[in-house]
Simulated assay, not measured.
Amino acid sequence: MDTQDLLIFKHVADLHSISKAAEKLDYVQSNVSQRMKILEDELGARLLIRSNRGVKLTEEGTTLYKYAEDILKLMQDAKSAIEKINGENTWS
């Protein structure tokens, strides 16, 4: 599992749709579907209930969603902190 998989998962969950997430992320739908399947296989749990009206999170998916939000926020915080340090350093 990597942060990109978590970002894709979060978009799918937020939009309740694999195709809408793919469109928003500028990916092909089959790639998003495949990444979600790989994530489910890696975790050994079904994360999404797929239907012709979109997707819903399973209990396991809801748990992962909460962690994904935290992880993605921490990643952004770390990036911002490093950018701030780099901005304060003067390389002469």
Rank of each mutant, 00 (worst) to 15 (best):
L7K: 11
I8T: 10
I8W: 03
I8Q: 04
K10M: 09
K10P: 03
K10V: 12
H11W: 11
H11Y: 13
V12M: 02
D14E: 08
L15T: 06
H16T: 06
S17H: 10
S17L: 13
I18D: 00
I18T: 09
I18C: 06
K20C: 02
K20V: 00
K20W: 02
A22F: 11
K24L: 01
K24C: 02
K24Q: 03
L25V: 07
L25F: 06
Y27V: 05
Y27Q: 03
N31W: 12
V32S: 01
S33C: 05
K37G: 11
I38G: 09
D41E: 13
E42Y: 05
E42M: 08
L43P: 05
L43Q: 08
R46Q: 15
L47R: 04
L47T: 10
L47N: 07
L48I: 02
I49E: 15
I49T: 13
R50Q: 10
N52S: 12
R53F: 01
R53A: 04
R53W: 00
G54K: 01
V55L: 07
V55S: 01
K56F: 05
T58L: 04
T58C: 05
T58E: 03
T58R: 07
T58P: 07
E59S: 05
E59R: 06
E60P: 04
E60S: 11
T62R: 04
T62F: 01
T62M: 02
L64G: 07
A68P: 12
E69K: 09
D70H: 03
I71K: 02
L72V: 15
L72M: 14
K73E: 15
K73Q: 14
K73S: 08
K73R: 11
M75Y: 10
M75N: 12
Q76W: 06
Q76R: 11
Q76F: 02
Q76G: 01
A78C: 04
